[in-house]
Amino acid sequence: MSDALEIFASLGLWAAVLRIATPLIFGTLGALLCERAGVLNLGIEGIMTFGAMLGWLTVFEGGNLWMGLVAAAAGGALFGLLHAAMTVPLGLSQHVTGLGITLFASSLSYFIFRLVVPLQGTPPTIVAFQPIDFPVLSDLPVLGPTIFSQTAPTYLAILAAIVLAWVLAKTPLGLAIRMTGENPHAAEAQGVDPIKVRIGAVVAGSALMGLGGSFLTLSAFNSFFPTMVQGRGWVCIALVVFSTWKPGRALLGAILFALFDAYQLRLQTVFGKAVPYQVFLMMPYLLSIVALVVMSRRARVPQALMQPYRRGER
């Protein structure tokens, strides 16, 4: 049993936490932004896949890593625009449209990838983001190798959480987004155009999801392969509920989740002989379900979530 606890003493575990958390932070923030404006975006899984593919492809075709990030965000935004166009002005079912976007975006990702990279033994690789070497900070004991030796997108994710928290809580734009998510009719009466706010929020949120996907191919790994997102998008949707729709808690939730994920990976090496590895791999998904059940009573859902807004129609 002490072996299981000793894992917590290893720096490797804590260094892995922020790395595993990064795509979840981006994805959760993106989904949170959409939902705060009243739109459930189940396109997330496909949008993350598309971001992973497009970001990787941009670098593979000669772009630099930052161009890869921009491309992934733009690709995500494009699918966000499609989701918004169908669910906001047209008011189509957010559930079904989102699933359709996921199926479309992921199959399109595989199609484009296979078109550029024909089937071969080992997938081609790129040179991914390297850990940043901060002067002084990276050499600190404990904090250095865990917090100050991450790659650039990880710090971008944390920054995104802070910015989103500030925008939602402190700015007129954030107020407009929250009003639209709670009561679009009241927002309209206050001179806010709910349609525009929702479209904007879904597009921006989807760009964040695209960034989250691209972290997988531009930093965590250096190649793209189908089904690499592995349900991370759905985990993000669960994390939004866990975070009670607050960016700060979304950051915390993603980090806690990542800590658990990093821990179970290392636990496999301790108990791997006695317990099949699949049991450990199931844990994160089961934990997400448990988190949903625990939080469901306390969560305060945006009141107009999933309710289409049509002017003059109640």
Binding site: L42, G231, I237, V241, Q278, M282, Y285, S296
Partner: peptide, 29 residues
């Protein structure tokens, strides 16, 4: 879970797909 706790079944059924696939993998190995 939806009827008792109000948990949206979209996310839970989606997540269960991954759990089941791992379970299948565990059984056939």
């Amino acid at each position: 879970l939806r009827l008792r706790f109000g948990v949206d079944e979209v996310v839970t059924t989606l997540l269960l797909n991954f759990v089941v696939l791992l379970f299948v993998s565990m059984m056939i190995e």
